[in-house]
């Protein structure tokens, strides 16, 4: 098909070779780039399990509570007036509001409809129909770990 063999033929050949090399190289790069990115783990280096570092003991005074995150759901860790550390789901069993610790009542309280829970997570009064889910608490040095479903 080439009307003038020779110079143009050679340049076309080298063009084809260049194109082939470049495009195959680019394809390889396109395939390898995600791989190189994939093998480096993200900031949160572990797949979330049922355990989370909820609070520092030193940041949790007596008769106080702290809301932490369990994935996208809130949990609450409570340090009672006597120094015990307990943790519950912070999702109110009535309409899913986030509960809080009320130092004046010395128990857990939901602001939405004035629901009260005791320090075992049991619903005391107000509309909540069920107790809060109780989580397991492990204290390692200053770290308060909370485990779900244990």
């Amino acid at each position: 098909m080439d009307p003038v063999p020779g110079k143009s033929g050679i340049s076309r050949k080298s063009f084809v070779n260049w194109l082939l090399g470049t495009s195959l190289g680019a394809t390889l790069a396109a395939a390898l780039y995600p791989v190189f990115r994939f093998v480096i783990p993200p900031e949160v280096a572990e797949a979330p399990v049922n355990r989370v570092l909820a609070a520092k003991l030193s940041e949790l005074p007596l008769n106080a509570g702290k809301v932490f995150r369990f994935g996208s759901k809130p949990g609450i860790v409570v340090r009672t007036a006597t120094g015990e550390v307990r943790a519950f789901s912070a999702v109110c069993t009535h309409l899913n509001c986030t509960v809080q610790y009320r130092p004046d009542f010395q128990h857990v309280w939901c602001a939405c409809h004035n629901g009260h829970y005791d320090l075992q997570g049991k619903n005391l009064s107000g509309p909540p129909p069920r107790p809060l889910e109780v989580y397991k608490v492990d204290i390692a040095g200053d770290d308060v770990y909370v485990t779900k479903g244990a």
């Binding site: 995600p34 791989v35 990115r37 994939f38 093998v39 480096i40 783990p41 993200p42 949160v44 572990e46 797949a47 979330p48 399990v49 049922n50």
Partner: peptide
Amino acid sequence: LLLLYYRPTAEAAFESVQFIVTRVPFGWLV
């Protein structure tokens, strides 16, 4: 590649795949 992050237990399998597709760079693609 998936083996680098996958965990074969009933408790963690789903979470680890979720972790791969949402958090690991290009995990969704792999």
